[in-house]
Structures are given as C-alpha cells and as structure tokens.
Amino acid sequence: MTWFQKWRRGEGAQGLFLISPTLAFTLLLLAVPLVLVVALSFWTQDYLTLHRTFTMDNYKTAWSEPMYQYLMGRSLKISMMVTAMTVLLAYPVAYFISFYVPPKRKAMWIFLITIPFWTSYLMRIFLWKVILGYNGVVNGSLMGLGLIEEPLSFILYNQNAVVLTLAHAWVPFAILPIFVALERVDRSLIEAAEDLGDSKLRRFFRVTLPLSMPGVIAATIIVFIPTIGDYVTPRLVGGPNGLMIANMIELQFKKANNAPLGAALAISAMAIVTCVALIFIWMNKKYIRGAK
C-alpha cells in the first residue's frame, strides 16, 4: 500500500492525472472512431441497414475497380506534385528569411507569410478560380499585354489548377519547419566549409541542405498526408479530371450511402499515403547518412 501512496504523490502519477482528460477526449473521439471506421470497412451496407458480418468485399472493390484505382493513382500523383511544388516553393523563402533577413525582422517576415493563410479557406480556393478562369485575372492580363490572342483554357478545371491552389494553401506550413531547421544550422559549419574551399553551390548541397533535411521531411509530411484528404479544392477548380479520392469518399458517405466502401477507400488511401511517407523518410535517412 505504501508504494502506491508514494507513487500517487510522485511526479508520474501527477502528470498522468493532469493529462488524463485530454488523453481521454482524444481516445474517445479519435482512437475509438478510427477503430470503428476500420471495423466498418469490413462490414456491408444495404441502403440504410448495416450487415455486421466480416467481409473483404469492400477492399476488393476498392483495390480492383478501375475507377477507384484510377482515382487513387491520380490522387497520389496530385498529392506528390503538390508536395514537391510546395517544398520547392517554400525552401528558397525559408532560406531567404533565415540567411538574408536581419534577426530582428525575422518574426515579422514569418507573420507576413502566414497572413494569407487566414483568409477564409473556401474564399481562397474560389478566388483562384477567379484568377485562373476563362475571363480571369491571368488571361485578362496576358491578353491586355498582347501576349496571347485567345484566353488560355489549360489553366483552370484540371489537375494543374488543383496543384497550384493546394500548393498555395499549404506553403506557409512548409516554410515554417524548413525555416526552423535552417535556423538551427550552425553558421560556423558553413563558414568552415567555405574555409575549406567549397564553392557556394557545393557548400549548399554538402552542408546546408543535409543539415536542413529534417525540416524538409517535416514539411513534406505536413503537406503530403493532409493533401490526400482535400475534397473541396478538386471540386471547385479541378473540373471532371481533377477529382481526387477524397471526393469519392465523400460521395460514398453522403450521397451513395455506402459508408463501408467509403471507409475502405479512406483506410486504403491512408495506408498508401503512410507507406509512401515512410519510404520517403527512410530514403532521406540514407541520404543524410550518405552525406556525412
């Protein structure tokens, strides 16, 4: 009994006690629902009645039906393109703020970069539609400048528009972790490399980039995983060829009334995305080790 009393008064117990409400809430509203979604994906639904017998049919459908295969492949491709574009866009910005902006102004620059993120999410996507549209800003300006005769039609209602819009939405989330990683890079290491006669470009690839890789990985994960779940952007700017797997999941849950298939699709998508992310992290570990 005394060990119990001692434990109860100790740090461990107090910490667990304090965190328990938050933990309980997250367990109840995240873990339990996720488990239920997994269970649901093995059941079947017939209009509104649910059959709770174990079946793999949903997964068979999700993985064999050409439409789902196609959607999954396209979503993965779009997510990867968004991630690549976002990180490529973000890296020079983070680099600029970290290496060129005087320390006192850094916070202001970071704030400047996060502001557009607080524009209403739906409005932001919609405004891209306005910008890229047939009578939109881009076409209007290009025609005004006499660069084109006819409005360009390849910039809206396709995958490019989806990639551009999503990249815009996620770029602040990619800049922040890369910036933090760059700030942690020991400046004397870079000077040492310079001292040893490395050229600027070599120095960047051999010292700065490997050292900032943890930030790049974090940025990649932060952008890649949630992107697969966006169904608003494809719907607004993607046109028929820009739709992604999330639109199908939404459809199954809402209009098609086939929640089990929706659950199987959602879990499959999550599994694929997680695998890709893990492979990416693993490859990077090898790269960083190689650079050392």
Partner: peptide, 9 residues
C-alpha cells in the same frame, strides 16, 4: 491527419 478522416470517423 487529413481532416476528411476525422470527419468520416
């Protein structure tokens, strides 16, 4: 986590 997963679950 993708928000759609949270919404769905």
């Amino acid at each position: 986590l993708p928000e759609i997963i949270i919404g769905v679950s």
